[in-house]
Amino acid sequence: MAMVDNKPELVEMTKAQKKAQRRRSVAIGLVLAAFVIIVYVGSWAKMGGALFSRPM
């Protein structure tokens, strides 16, 4: 990022840009949460009751 007089040049986002960024962040959060749930539920469905009865 360009620097002027040792001060960082900041980008001032418009209202629409801030709103879009927030909505993208929420969407990424939701997708990641959904992925965690999918892996968790999928593991249970695949291994069933045997999930904890495997030799260590």
Binding site: R24, V26, A27
Partner: peptide, 12 residues
């Protein structure tokens, strides 16, 4: 010029 995306989740 520095552009900031206005893409919404729907665009993805």
């Amino acid at each position: 010029e520095t552009l900031v995306s206005e893409a919404l989740p729907g665009d993805y």
